[in-house]
Measured scan of single mutants.
Amino acid sequence: NITNLCPFDEVFNATRFASVYAWNRKRISNCVADYSVLYNLAPFFTFKCYGVSPTKLNDLCFTNVYADSFVIRGDEVRQIAPGQTGNIADYNYKLPDDFTGCVIAWNSNKLDSKVSGNYNYLYRLFRKSNLKPFERDISTEIYQAGNKPCNGVAGFNCYFPLRSYSFRPTYGVGHQPYRVVVLSFELLHAPATVCGPKKST
């Protein structure tokens, strides 16, 4: 009989979030998941669920729940959905087409922007091929755009693959930082360890 609440607040209220290319994953298990708490945590810009209804979450049980978190800019949030393409979905964080879970995003301009520009958040701009779903690539190998090998040196047709967002508070919403948490629900042929409040007794 599990009584402890799932530590969603640790994920959502973390002081620092990860850069999207090096997104963070927390496995959540053996706890009571009260998803209604999430609705009250922040004024969400996005709370979209796929393959599951957000209002039914509190009635369900899962084997595992994974919470992935990272920062992107406002106009990239739409890429965090099944079947999307674009720089983020292709080279940084890719959801599977049959994704079961929820994408939660909110504006973090007050936390993640600086007047002089916050350069701490990076994204991958160049990659030889698209990522597979939930693949994480943290390599910093020089990207070869031409025929000549780069031998690890940046220059003509040889690019450092990561680029930094420079978040400034005066930017338009599309270029402001957004914190994203992706909850993916895993149903294996194994005992369910993460249940809503109704199912945990």
Rank of each mutant, 00 (worst) to 15 (best):
N1P: 13
I2W: 13
L5R: 13
F12P: 04
N13P: 04
S19G: 05
V20M: 00
K26F: 09
I28S: 06
S29L: 08
C31H: 06
V32C: 12
D34N: 12
D34F: 06
Y35W: 15
L41D: 10
F45P: 15
T46C: 07
G51D: 06
G51E: 05
V52W: 08
V52D: 06
S53C: 07
P54I: 14
T55I: 12
D59W: 10
D59I: 09
L60T: 11
C61Y: 08
F62M: 11
N64H: 15
Y66L: 11
A67T: 06
R73K: 11
E76T: 03
I80H: 01
A81R: 08
P82Y: 02
G83Q: 09
I88A: 04
A89D: 01
Y91M: 09
Y93L: 02
K94E: 00
K94F: 03
L95P: 01
D97P: 12
D98I: 08
T100R: 13
G101T: 02
G101W: 02
I104V: 12
I104Q: 01
A105R: 05
W106I: 06
N107H: 01
L111N: 08
D112E: 03
D112A: 03
G117P: 03
N118M: 05
L122K: 15
Y123S: 13
Y123R: 04
K128V: 09
K128N: 11
K128H: 14
N130K: 15
K132S: 11
E135H: 08
R136C: 05
D137R: 03
S139G: 11
E141M: 10
I142E: 02
N147M: 07
P149V: 08
N151K: 14
G152F: 07
V153G: 11
A154C: 07
G155F: 04
Y159Q: 00
R163L: 15
Y165H: 01
F167V: 00
F167Q: 00
R168A: 02
P169Y: 05
T170D: 02
G174P: 06
Q176V: 00
Y178C: 09
V181K: 01
S184K: 10
L187I: 13
L187H: 12
L188Y: 12
P191Y: 10
A192M: 14
G196R: 11
K198F: 14
K199I: 13
